[in-house]
C-alpha cells in the first residue's frame, strides 16, 4: 500500500494489526507489530514524503510469522550505523524510530543509498 499522508500511517497499522491477529499472534504481539508499522510509515512520511509498505504472512519450518517491507525512494540514509543508534534523528522527531523498531521485531534488515531511497525489512515470529 502507498504511504504518503499521515492518514495512511493509521491505515497501515490497522491493516498490520488485523493481519497479525489473523496469523494468530497474541494481542500483545499484534500491538508490537502495529507500533512498528506506525514507526516505519512515519519514517516514510517525514523523510521521503512518499513510499510503500507491504505486509505478508511468512512460514519457516514450523513457525508462522509476518513480514513488513517499507520502501521509499527518498533521500536515503547516509550513515546507517548512526541512524541505528538510539537518539539519532535528522527531522526533529525523538529519533527512536529505527532502533525502536528493531527492538519491537525479531528480524531487522535495512538497505539505503543516499539519493536513492531506503528499504527496511522486518519480521516477527509467533512464539
Amino acid at each position: 500500500m502507498v504511504i504518503n499522508s499521515d492518514q495512511d500511517i493509521v491505515t497501515a497499522r490497522q491493516r498490520g494489526r488485523a493481519l497479525a491477529i489473523e496469523v494468530g499472534f497474541s494481542t500483545g504481539d499484534a500491538t508490537l507489530i502495529a507500533t512498528a508499522i506506525s514507526e516505519l510509515a512515519r519514517n516514510i512520511v517525514s523523510y521521503a514524503r512518499k513510499g510503500e509498505i507491504s505486509l505478508k504472512q511468512v512460514h519457516a519450518s514450523s513457525r508462522q510469522g509476518i513480514l513488513i517491507v517499507a520502501s521509499d525512494d527518498g533521500p536515503g540514509i547516509r550513515d546507517i550505523r548512526q541512524a541505528m543508534r538510539d537518539g539519532f534523528s535528522t527531522s526533529g522527531s525523538l529519533g527512536l524510530g529505527l532502533p525502536g523498531v528493531r527492538r519491537l521485531m525479531d528480524e531487522f534488515e535495512i538497505a539505503s543509498e543516499p539519493g536513492r531511497g531506503t528499504t527496511v525489512k522486518v519480521k516477527k515470529w509467533k512464539q
Partner: peptide, 14 residues
C-alpha cells in the same frame, strides 16, 4: 494506557 500499549511503548523507549 492499555497494558499491551505500555509494553510496546517501553520497548520503543517511550
Amino acid at each position: 494506557i492499555q497494558p499491551e500499549v505500555a509494553f510496546a511503548m517501553v520497548q520503543l523507549g517511550l
